[in-house]
Lab assay of single mutants.
Amino acid sequence: GKELVLALYDYQEKSPREVTMKKGDILTLLNSTNKDWWKVEVKATANDKTYERQGFVPAAYVKKL
């Protein structure tokens, strides 16, 4: 199945390749080969529509579930 990670801290994206997350968010882990930056998929809701974004977050800010 898919691997999930838990956001340990809030993170505000600093570039278009990154994604914003809030502490407590559960994210889908896409790639953890880089030890510093993990690629995740974030589900977000805006205007009653759910959309998914993929991007990088600092590996130290998340932990595998």
Rank of each mutant, 00 (worst) to 15 (best):
K64E: 06
N31R: 06
K14A: 09
L4K: 10
G55L: 05
Y61Q: 06
P16T: 09
S32H: 06
S32G: 10
V42I: 11
G55M: 05
Q54Y: 07
T33N: 12
V42S: 11
K43S: 13
S32Y: 06
L4D: 04
N47W: 11
V57I: 08
A59E: 03
K35C: 09
V19H: 01
V57M: 03
Y9H: 11
R53G: 05
N31P: 03
K35E: 09
E41L: 12
Y61P: 02
E3N: 11
G55I: 04
W38G: 00
T33G: 08
V19A: 06
L65P: 02
K22P: 00
T33K: 11
E13V: 05
Y61D: 04
Y9I: 08
A59L: 04
K43D: 08
Y9Q: 12
K14W: 04
F56C: 15
Y51A: 11
D48Y: 08
Q12G: 07
K22T: 08
F56R: 02
L4V: 07
M21Y: 01
L6K: 08
L65H: 05
A46I: 15
S15H: 11
E13Q: 12
Y61C: 15
V5T: 02
G1K: 13
A60W: 10
Q54P: 04
K35F: 07
N31Q: 09
D25T: 06
A44Q: 11
V42Q: 15
K63E: 14
F56Y: 14
D10Q: 03
A7V: 09
L65D: 03
L29T: 01
T20R: 05
E13F: 05
D48H: 09
V5D: 00
V40K: 00
G1I: 12
E13S: 15
V19C: 07
T45P: 08
P58K: 04
N47M: 10
T28F: 10
L29V: 05
A44E: 15
G24A: 02
T50N: 11
Y51Q: 10
D36Y: 15
E52H: 14
E52S: 14
L6W: 06
I26H: 04
L8F: 02
Y11D: 00
K49D: 09
L65Q: 05
A7F: 03
K2M: 11
K49G: 13
V19F: 06
P58D: 04
S15Q: 06
V62C: 15
I26M: 05
K64G: 05
P58A: 02
Q12H: 12
K2R: 13
K23C: 08
V57C: 03
Y9A: 11
L6A: 05
L4F: 14
D10M: 02
Y61H: 08
V42F: 08
Y61T: 08
T45D: 10
N31W: 06
V40H: 00
R17Q: 09
K43Q: 13
A7Q: 01
E3K: 07
S15K: 06
K43W: 12
A59Y: 03
L8K: 04
K43T: 14
K63A: 09
F56S: 02
P58G: 03
L27I: 07
Y61R: 06
A44L: 15
K14G: 07
S32N: 07
Q54K: 08
A59G: 04
A59N: 03
A59S: 12
V42A: 14
K22I: 07
T50Y: 10
N31F: 06
K63M: 13
Y11C: 04
L65E: 03
A46C: 15
E52A: 15
G24V: 02
E41Y: 07
G1T: 12
D25E: 09
T28L: 15
K22N: 10
V40M: 00
L6E: 11
R17G: 13
Y61A: 11
W37K: 02
N31I: 07
K49P: 09
Y11F: 05
V62P: 03
W38I: 04
F56W: 15
D48C: 14
Y61M: 14
E3V: 14
E18G: 09
D25I: 03
A44R: 12
R53Q: 06
K35N: 10
T33Q: 12
G55A: 03
V62H: 02
K22V: 08
V62D: 03
K49E: 12
I26S: 03
K23W: 04
D36Q: 12
N31H: 06
E18M: 04
L29N: 00
A44Y: 15
K23R: 10
R17K: 11
E3T: 13
W37E: 04
K39S: 06
V19G: 02
L4W: 12
K22A: 08
K39E: 14
K22W: 08
P58E: 02
Q12W: 12
F56N: 03
A60Y: 08
L30F: 03
T33Y: 10
N47G: 12
L29I: 03
K35Q: 09
W37A: 02
L30W: 03
Y51I: 12
N47R: 08
V19M: 07
D10K: 02
E3A: 10
E52L: 15
D25C: 08
Y11A: 01
S15I: 04
Q54T: 11
T45V: 13
F56P: 00
T33L: 10
D10L: 02
Q54D: 05
L29Q: 00
V40D: 00
A60K: 15
L29F: 02
R53A: 06
G1N: 13
I26N: 01
Q54L: 05
K63Y: 07
A46L: 15
M21V: 10
R53N: 06
Y9C: 15
A7T: 03
L65G: 03
E41S: 14
V57G: 01
K35P: 14
E52W: 15
K39V: 14
A59H: 02
N34Y: 06
L65N: 02
V19L: 10
Y51T: 12
V42P: 06
G24C: 11
K63G: 07
I26F: 05
T45N: 12
E41T: 09
K49M: 14
L6I: 14
G1R: 13
A60E: 10
K14S: 10
K43G: 10
A59F: 01
V62G: 01
S32I: 05
Y51P: 10
L27W: 03
T20L: 01
S32C: 13
D48E: 12
S32L: 03
L27Q: 01
L65Y: 07
Y9E: 08
A46H: 14
L30E: 02
G55F: 07
Y11T: 01
Q12P: 05
E13C: 12
A59I: 03
E52P: 15
A46V: 15
G55Q: 01
K22Q: 07
P16G: 08
V5I: 07
Y11I: 00
M21P: 01
A60P: 07
K2Y: 13
Q12N: 14
D25M: 12
S15M: 07
L6Y: 09
Q12R: 10
R53L: 07
N47E: 11
Q12E: 13
R53F: 06
Y51N: 09
T28Y: 12
W37C: 05
D25W: 09
D48G: 15
